[in-house]
Simulated assay, not measured.
Amino acid sequence: MTSVFTKIINGELPGRFVYRDDKVAAFLTIEPVAYGHTLVVPIQEVDKWTDLDAETWAHCNSVAQKVGAAVIDVFGSERAGYLIAGFDVPHTHIHIFPANDMSGYSLANAMKPDETDDAAMDEAAEKLRAALS
């Protein structure tokens, strides 16, 4: 069955994309721990990151590093958090988010979609796109 991330990547569901190439897409999560919380997702639908081929995994991490640098720059955070969880959607993804403490590493602290401000989400995506271009 097609994952929700594949549906976003294919344009079947809306997504706030900040980066995309032929192997990887990066878009804001609908349940952020902070505005700017981005998912780096391989285009290829593979459930576990340990099952990705080494080249694709390396490229995901290269993109994640660029997104992380943009997150620090755009949001003025002390660090960019990096987290692999993967139990919620069976499609490899890396969480990158502004981090000033350890609270973002618990996805239980994430905002629900009805708790986020659409204008703030759009602004976060626009700023990250600009920083990554």
Score class of each variant (00 low, 15 high):
Ala120Met: 14
Ala58His: 05
Ala131Arg: 12
Thr92Ser: 13
Val63Cys: 04
His37Gln: 11
Asp122Leu: 09
Val89Ser: 07
Ser133Glu: 03
Thr56Trp: 05
Ala70Asp: 04
Gln44Ala: 15
Arg16Val: 01
Asn109Arg: 05
Asp114Phe: 12
Asn10Ala: 13
Ala34Val: 11
Val40Phe: 00
Met121Trp: 04
Ala26Ser: 15
Pro90Gly: 11
Phe27Ile: 00
Asp73Gln: 14
Thr2Asn: 14
Asn100Tyr: 03
Leu83Ile: 12
Asp117Cys: 08
Gly76Asn: 09
Ala34Leu: 07
Ser103Thr: 06
Thr2Arg: 09
Trp49Val: 13
Val18His: 00
Trp49His: 11
Pro42Asp: 01
Gln44Lys: 11
Asp122Arg: 04
Glu45Gln: 15
Glu45Pro: 02
Val41Tyr: 00
Pro90Leu: 08
Val18Gln: 01
Leu107Glu: 04
Glu55Asn: 13
Cys60Val: 14
Asn100Arg: 11
Ala54Leu: 14
Ile72Tyr: 04
Arg79His: 15
His59Val: 08
Val24Lys: 00
Thr56Lys: 05
Asp47Pro: 10
Gly76His: 10
Val67Ala: 10
Ala119Leu: 09
Ile94Thr: 02
Ala54Asn: 12
Pro32Met: 14
Ala108Ser: 15
Lys127Met: 02
Gln44Met: 02
Asp21Trp: 07
Lys66Leu: 09
Arg20Gly: 12
Ser77Leu: 06
Phe97Cys: 06
Gln65Met: 09
Tyr105Val: 03
Gly36Asp: 06
Lys66Trp: 04
Lys7Gln: 15
Gly11Thr: 07
Thr6Trp: 05
Ala119Ile: 04
Glu45Asn: 11
Ile96Pro: 01
Gly81Tyr: 02
Arg79Trp: 14
Asp47Met: 08
Lys48Glu: 15
Arg20Ile: 03
Ala25Tyr: 03
Thr29Ser: 15
Tyr35Thr: 01
Ala58Cys: 09
Leu39Asn: 00
Ser3Met: 07
Leu28Lys: 03
Met102Asn: 09
Lys127Tyr: 02
Asp118Tyr: 04
Ser3Thr: 13
Tyr35Gln: 11
Val18Thr: 07
Ala85Ile: 09
Phe17His: 08
